[in-house]
Design a protein around this nucleic acid. Sequence first.
RNA 1: GGCCCCAUCGUCUAGUUAGGCCUAGGACACUGGAUUUUCAUUCCAGUAACGGGGGUUCAAAUCCCCCUGGGGUCACCA
Length: 552
Amino acid sequence: MTVRTRFAPSPTGYMHIGGMRTALFNWLWARRNGGRFILRIDDTDQQRNMDEALGPILDAFRWLGLDWDEGPEVGGDFGPYFQSQRRDLHNAALQQLLNSKAAYRDFEPSAETQAQREAAEREKRVYISSRISLDLSDADVVAKLNAGEPHVVRLKVPRERTVKIVDLVRGSVEWDCGLMVDPVIARGDGSPLYNFASVVDDAQLEITHVIRAEEHLSNTPVQVLLFEALGHSLPEFAHIPFVAAPGGKKKLSKRDIAAYRKSPAFQKLFQLGDEVLSGIGIDPFDDALSPVMVAYYREVGFLPAGVLNALARLGWSLDDETEHMSLQTLQEHFSLDRVVKASAGLDPDKLMSFQAHWMSQLSTADKVAGCLPMLQKAGLIPTQAFWILSDTDSEQVELPKNFPGTAVPYMPDTDIQTRVRQVVELAGDRLRVFGDILGLSEFFKATEDLVYDEKEFQKRVVRPDDAVPLLRELRQTFAEQDAFEADSLHAKVEAFVSARELKFGQIAPTLRLAITGKTKGADLFPTLELLGREECLRRMDRAIGIANSQRV
RNA sequence: GGCCCCAUCGUCUAGUUAGGCCUAGGACACUGGAUUUUCAUUCCAGUAACGGGGGUUCAAAUCCCCCUGGGGUCACCA
């Protein structure tokens, strides 16, 4: 039998990183078994704007390279794939249950039901449904129906039974039906509720493996009963642990963003994200984008491979040592029996480590392709002139939002093209995410736009009495230097230093600050070479000027 | 509170199904050292865990029981 798995998101306008992990496991299981992965959209009746609500979810799948065999856009033999369009199926199933008396119409006022529930709770009794409507004759029911009396449809739970499943992750789990409330499966108007619609759809879609987060475990007995009442065989269940917040055991949730900001475990990620996002004109404090969402990682410049690797290792391992796995490797080796039972906290540090690894595997050309959009969004390099329409495939390159048609990057200005590549090469491992390129803005800014680290500038350039004179002398040396390239610059500065019986460390930070505005960064002399003599001299002049004005 | 799930280094995990190969392995993080013109990388080293108590057994991280702790869920949401 063909393995069929599904992921059934509600169109919420964003893709949750934990949900993505569930989707990934479903996808992997299908691929591993040569099966089909289905995307079903669990929308409720009137979704306001489907494009807006579903778009980001599909984008997340596409970005990570998880394709779906059936679902929105691709269709399939079991459609429609939007739950709201499957009402006929739900209606038929509902009628079937009503006819077979497996379900009944409950006319008890909801206030009354609620009161009973509360009374039971007060008396520390288990609450079970009163089933008072079961005393109604068929004629009574018809009469009430005709009179339009409000009601719901409930499944009649076989109270003498126990429901038992053998979960592929958790093993055997069972529930005593005598403790269960008759669940509402549809409203009076026939609109189905989640548990019911989900079962009907899973059955009709011939889903063989229901792989979902463990918070759904408590829904399972009801669903099992529904499968049985409908005469369907059960799918296999695999309840995988949910993704917990860093440093905690609680479910990672969009609502808790404010708290995560203060969490030490999240600190570095937020710092990186804030810098990159504000650099490209996105307000990081506007919760439209947060580390709970897949889109966040794309915007900051993570690689699909990094995110995928981190998600796969959350609650699953290949063996006792393999850490780095491509999607290809994952789909060859994924297994449900190696899924861990306990919830797993997302570890931003480890995610970054995976990311850095996959970034290091990328060619310079690919890194450049990833950095270009960043630099453009940040306004550090021109946008418009960069793009020409083309029929050629440009899958490596992320297009600006709303860009019309297909495009490949085209550099009318070879200086800029070369510059980006050189900076990327110079940055080396410092480029962990594409957004890191924004931290090297000194290579893309005009002399007068360069920003100095205020504190360090004071400490290294303004305050020391010899800093400005030394910079002057160095400037002179540079001006007279024959070849302005890294090695000879290095030799020149070494000679300069030893001639004055200084230590290298006494001049290098000052020079770096004058040239780049920072104390950290890529190798100094290649940096000088890349910037070129004219620019270096201008920057030194400017630094000297500013220092002098501040010393007065 | 009811029901259900879970429990190995700070974190992610291996080991638990078939008890001995475990003086508990790997990775991330952290600390120290080496390399280095800063930062980063790389390399080496180190700190660090079987929640507690009872059993069973020659032998228990692994099996059983209890306790404790953590979590999920209890809608005419999905």
